[in-house]
Amino acid sequence: MAAGPPREAPVPGGEPASAASTQVTAAGAAAAPQGPCRAASGRSLTLSVRADPASVRAALVAATDCLARHGVGPEALGRVELALAEALNNIVEHALAGRPGAEIGLTLHCGLPVWLDCELRDDGCPMPGGLLPRGALPLPLPGAGALPEGGFGWFLIRTLAENLRYRREGQTNLLSFRIRLAPA
């Protein structure tokens, strides 16, 4: 199950390099990648995340640990973690619903200290209509008794992320976005 420590590869010319995959599962010893983390600028980190909530949690902890060790501050780290959590949860709950053994490929391309590009791929169901949800807040918020208990995920992603893109390639969903780490 464990593929050892994550290996990151340089990203020549801005093209994603193939990086070794680290399996992230809830129970696995590889839940948090061990060893040196080299998510320095121009490098990428790839994680393979099983499609269940506990594995998503482990992947978020692993990714943010790695970024923290490279000097990403708590404010930016919080935004990165929230955007990734919402994107991963959406895949688990919709595209890969009922397929907890399936995997999500998560790649972070680091343009430290300014930005972080995030890519997620899965082989689940396509987005309805081939489009990302609008994710609008129901404003004005209804009275307490009628408040929605869900549907905030895409609103948060759209608020936190730039360059949000989705496309379907064959049987694969590809979602990508950029999180700004430092003020423009």
Binding site: L60, E81, L82, A85, E86, N89, A144, G145, L147, P148, E149, G150, G151, F152, G153, L156
Partner: peptide, 15 residues
């Protein structure tokens, strides 16, 4: 850390 599912749980508990 709180995500939108956790937020939904807070709203659900309030209701």
């Amino acid at each position: 850390f709180l995500d939108s599912s956790g937020l939904g749980a807070l709203v659900g508990a309030m209701k």
